[in-house]
Design a binder for these strands. Structure first.
Lengths: 114, 114
DNA sequence: TCCATATTTCAATATTCGTTGAATTATGGA
DNA sequence: TCCATAATTCAACGAATATTGAAATATGGA
């Protein structure tokens, strides 16, 4: 990960509502959550939430897809892991001090009935 | 680490100059670096740098001490590690997925000749 | 004491950020 | 088609941010 991307990701997470949103999406796992459900869970106005989703998306921390009337937002674990990697890059004099820095979803995405 | 502290630490690192400063101090290790040396290394105006040091300090990411005319800034590894811990807290459904997320200085502080 | 160095303080400024309210777009169902 | 739901867009606003230049403070040495 480049420094510019790291700054973007850090900035995206450096805000109360957005940190809450991201953590909620991480817990939701690969299936993601509709915007409305996030708004209700965190008690944030829908338009405010759109603003924050945009920033998270710009930083590559979430993706969206439409499902009917709902927009489903999903956490991007790869970006988060890349950020963790970047942050530990300079530790311990360059030696990889953390054997495995990595975040993965709690459960596999349920295979949808074809 | 509390959410409020995490937001503060993330915000402190979410800026080009400050991220550079912090990484430089991490590489400098426990002995730290005088403000002037940081200013020269990164080509940032001294007063601008003071502003950024203040933010890093407010977030607990650095400490200062005076040495003669110089102010020596030092990275706080504990805070960085606490932040990494916080960020990985929600991964993997609550299970501690990263055996050892931790950053430690490259070399021990050189014992000054008494 | 006087001077140079190292750093901070302060005011000013342009920019970005987070939130709100009103209006708009997109989708699905009656 | 008409309506309700889900979410976004837009303009506006106050608050916070990052940088600059000028002035001030602290320390050490001649």
């Amino acid at each position: 990960m480049e420094k510019t991307e790291a700054v973007a990701a850090l900035g995206a997470l450096a805000q109360d509502n957005r940190l809450d949103v991201f953590r909620l999406l991480v817990q939701a796992g690969p299936d993601g959550m509709p915007a409305g459900a996030v708004a209700e869970a965190l008690d944030v106005a829908p338009n405010t939430l759109t603003f924050h989703f945009d920033r998270l998306r710009a930083a590559g921390l979430v993706t969206v897809r439409r499902d009917g009337r709902s927009m489903i937002y999903t956490a991007q674990f790869e970006t988060m892991n890349a950020l963790l990697g970047f942050l530990t890059e300079n530790c311990c004099g360059g030696a990889p001090c953390t054997a495995t820095v990595g975040c993965k979803p709690a459960r596999k995405r349920a295979k949808l009935p074809a």
